[in-house]
Design a protein around this nucleic acid. Sequence first.
DNA 1: ACTTTAAACACTCACAAAGTTTCCAAATTA
DNA 2: TAATTTGGAAACTTTGTGAGTGTTTAAAGT
Lengths: 203, 203
Amino acid sequence: METSEKLLIRSLEMFMRYGIKSVSMDDIASEMGMSKKTLYQYVKDKRDLVNQSVNYHFTQDREACSRVLGHSSNAIEQMLDIASHVIQMMRQMNPSTIYDLRKYYPEGWKKFEEHRKVFIVSCIRDNIQNGKENGLYRPELSEDVIAKIYITLIDASVNPTSELAELQNYSEIIRQVIDYHLHAITTHEGREYLYKHIEALNL
Amino acid sequence: METSEKLLIRSLEMFMRYGIKSVSMDDIASEMGMSKKTLYQYVKDKRDLVNQSVNYHFTQDREACSRVLGHSSNAIEQMLDIASHVIQMMRQMNPSTIYDLRKYYPEGWKKFEEHRKVFIVSCIRDNIQNGKENGLYRPELSEDVIAKIYITLIDASVNPTSELAELQNYSEIIRQVIDYHLHAITTHEGREYLYKHIEALNL
DNA sequence: ACTTTAAACACTCACAAAGTTTCCAAATTA
DNA sequence: TAATTTGGAAACTTTGTGAGTGTTTAAAGT
């Protein structure tokens, strides 16, 4: 493994575990068993390291999502599998990491959020098309509209000041959002399938 | 509820959720709906607030432990119930909070750790006496020695550089430590009881 | 032996935030 | 109602951490 990749992985681990502000470049250099001077041969500055490691995380996560989607046998199962994956992933996200990203690296956060939205929108559009072809989703649905509605709900689910934040925890929020979403878009046939499988949603 | 108590509770929530360094006095004042000037009427400085809120947490936790112990029907059940409680409590402890305490408030951390050890030692000593009287623990056990061994294991369980840190997660560490400890100190009768109940240890 | 590399650590400086002060509106008291 | 007190909002000063750079020197490589 290349040192530069190892650096991203280790930095990401530390940022995710302890938050970003608390982890100094001295800490990272020490963790990597190298001097700070050497560390700066790999990254321009801390901002660069933060952005690179966050992008690395996004890339890994996107690939994991694609693998999950590739294993799902129909559109509803895709949504349930992705929800399950998202719940697992968010369990590893330390609130302080998000807090620090928003507070100290707002541009990086915005870019990350934009990329994430583009990816989610793409997944939802594909999923709607797939669901229509399966006969599980209502044929009159507009991919664009549903994707925008879904993103609205997902944005609210991670916003500490939203109505949704009052729910018990993130797993419960996602569960409710998925339940709502799938009921909104399924045909009668789709709903029969949904009733049989939603209890398997892994919390 | 008194404002000063509410301040401790809210501060503790924020520190536990986002870490200590990331949460500024501005953030706390804003969260409390008061100005920084008013905030400083309640605490001397940030250090004071951190120490007070950590002590508050310790006091609450100690009381919860005492309640748990009061409901246990014998010495082994006490240990299993406390382990379960500790696992639940540690699930809420953000690694970044501990990291920040150790890094930026070492004296406060040391004092907190000392108090915690004294409390644990006291619980273990009582538990050993209780277990001997029940006939569940070996009569030749020395309370002092066993308490010291147990503290050694507990210290290692929260030290990121220890051998124990290689285990999967904290719940697993505690489970293994409790299993080990109880096997070490039980009589034949105690071990029969233990086999029947250790699977109920809440992970 | 000579050259290159990188660790360890010293150093400078920027900047965030701790803590203090000011202004002024709101609340309380007489 | 007027006077006094209180506390919010924000400006301000100070402090200290840590980002990033530079130096020394030992270790590694040729």
